[in-house]
Computed example of a mutant assay.
Amino acid sequence: MNIIYAEYNMYHNSIDIYTSAGYMLRIDCNKAEDYLITTPGSQCSLNALALDEPLEYARLYLDGTMQMWADAKDYLNI
């Protein structure tokens, strides 16, 4: 699956990924972050990541490494 691009959809609070095969994958940010343990700082970083680098946000979610990323953000911001 070749990804054409990804964008943040503010109307659905989701990341929309469009492929060259004509498929669209939508990741709901609310559901993706339901079970994450975040601080205000890491939550702000996640929001910025969704807006600025939606493909990276999607990769973290699909790889299951979003919690580790948020923990690292908290650790580095101390």
Rank of each mutant, 00 (worst) to 15 (best):
I15R: 02
C44F: 09
I27L: 15
M66H: 01
P54T: 10
A6N: 01
I78E: 14
D74A: 05
D71P: 05
L60K: 06
S42D: 05
T39E: 07
N47S: 07
I3G: 01
A48S: 12
R26D: 08
Y5F: 13
Y75A: 14
D63R: 09
I15Y: 00
S20M: 08
D28L: 01
A70N: 05
R26W: 08
I78K: 14
R26S: 15
M10G: 01
T65K: 13
Y5T: 13
S20Y: 03
Y8P: 01
L49I: 00
G41N: 04
T65F: 02
E56C: 10
C44P: 00
G22L: 09
N2F: 02
T38K: 00
G22I: 10
L55N: 12
L55T: 09
I3A: 03
L62M: 15
I37W: 06
Y8E: 08
D16G: 04
N13T: 12
Y18R: 13
C44H: 11
L46K: 07
A21L: 14
Y57Q: 01
L55G: 13
N9W: 01
N13M: 07
Y57D: 05
Y8W: 09
Y61C: 12
L60M: 10
Q67I: 02
I17L: 11
K73S: 05
D63H: 09
I78N: 12
S20L: 10
I37T: 13
L60S: 00
S45F: 10
E33C: 13
I37E: 15
Y35R: 12
S45G: 04
T38S: 03
